[in-house]
């Protein structure tokens, strides 16, 4: 799974994880979603929901989204629809600006990390690859 993320904690946690390629970009949440849409246009299929978690798009800076590692034969219209709807939702929330204090960045990164970890656990459970730790091991216990 290719994980497109602007969350440094996800890069740190999964940069050498066998079944995952982390594509870290230091961009805004909106820019990240648009990059994901570019990948969908380039025939990658979404593997995780772009609106994961209940922290609203205008209350966080961080997002991690899973896509197929390689492009597929055809453009996935369901993926395109989902990312378009998600971008529209993000932009709608952005109209109400909320101040996100720097002291909470770490917590926001942690919550995003646990959300994408749950998807990576599902991936590992479904498609164990050589060298992949067993399901559940991607979850953090003490950070």
């Amino acid at each position: 799974m290719k994980v497109l993320t602007n969350n440094p904690k996800v890069l740190e946690q999964f940069h050498s994880y066998p079944a995952v390629t982390v594509d870290y970009r230091a961009v805004s949440l909106h820019e990240l979603m648009v990059l994901v849409r570019d990948f969908v246009h380039a025939r990658h299929r979404l593997l995780t929901h772009p609106l994961s978690g209940s922290v609203k798009p205008n209350e966080t800076l961080y997002k991690s989204i899973g896509l197929t590692e390689q492009p597929e034969d055809q453009l996935c219209l369901e993926s395109l629809n989902l990312i378009e709807q998600s971008i529209s939702t993000v932009d709608r929330f952005a109209r109400i600006r909320k101040d996100i204090k720097e002291e909470h960045h770490q917590d926001l990164q942690l919550v995003d990390l646990t959300l994408i970890s749950s998807a990576i656990d599902s991936l590992a459970a479904a498609k164990p690859l050589p060298g992949t730790p067993p399901s559940g091991s991607s979850r953090l216990s003490s950070t």
């Binding site: 979404l46 593997l47 995780t48 929901h49 978690g53 749950s118 998807a119 479904a126």
Partner: peptide, 8 residues
């Protein structure tokens, strides 16, 4: 209500 789309 999982994050992973195949689970959904």
């Amino acid at each position: 209500e999982n994050v992973y789309l195949a689970d959904k």
